[in-house]
Amino acid sequence: MGKSATSRTILLLAPLLLFLGLAYVVPFLGVVRWSVTMPEPGLGQYRAVLTDPLVQSVFIRTLRICLIVTAAVLVMAYAIAYVWVRGTSTQRMLAEFCILVPFWISVLTRAFGWLALLSNRGLINTWLQAAGIISEPLALARNEFGVIVGMTHFLIPFAVFPIASAMRAIDERVLLAARGMGASRSRIFWSVFVPLTYGGLIGAALIVFVFALGFFVTPAILGGGRSVMVAELVYLRIFQSPDWGLGAAISVVLVLFIGILLALMRRFIKPAHLVG
């Protein structure tokens, strides 16, 4: 990129950079200050983050949920992307519908929607009880399971785009060549098609994982306070127990962790892989 092109890019990005700087970076520096000054100056709060069993358990739960969600999202997004890219025109339309409609509905509405389906007196439990399949309601919401279902549903479209873009880039003749050599459909899928989409899969995994780490609304509603994730813990520390220093330190650790993941993402995949 030439010098003038670089300065033009910066000029075009300036409004966004200015906004991000004023609305995110400056306040976050305040958060960083809290983490080392409240209640007294020092690194005490970071020591607490690393040793406090409650904080630890929330971090571990967050990682566990994020890993499960990422795996579930990748499998389902792969199937949807496959239908979207390689299906008949009707199948493609249906897939597009499934990808876009959730986008138009707010995260809050969707969380309550899942609650209506999954809670003890929700649709699923009512039906199953009416059908005589179960006598006691299944614990589907207000626990980790509910959180995972809600988050998976929310994140699928974000994984579909990079995966579909990797699938579209596959040369049809390569698949024909494999067929011509006598390879079965399953062998072509597993040893040619899937490996050629690894770039998209890695990109999708990172996006979903990073996004999931900071989830707040979905776990707060579907977890019912019993399955607290890191973002909710920060909220509780700051708004309910006046422990601003610990809340700030947790935030800083989370941002650092996400920063490292994003740096990895930049290293391993091209940005073009992340968009459709």
């Binding site: 040369d171 003749r173 390569v174 024909l176 060549a177 494999a178 011509g180 050599m181 040619v192 490996p195 050629l196 690894y198």
Partner: peptide, 12 residues
């Protein structure tokens, strides 16, 4: 055996 236009080698 088949040789395709553009070769169609497995890129991975």
């Amino acid at each position: 055996g088949m040789v395709f236009q553009g070769y169609a080698l497995f890129p991975h």
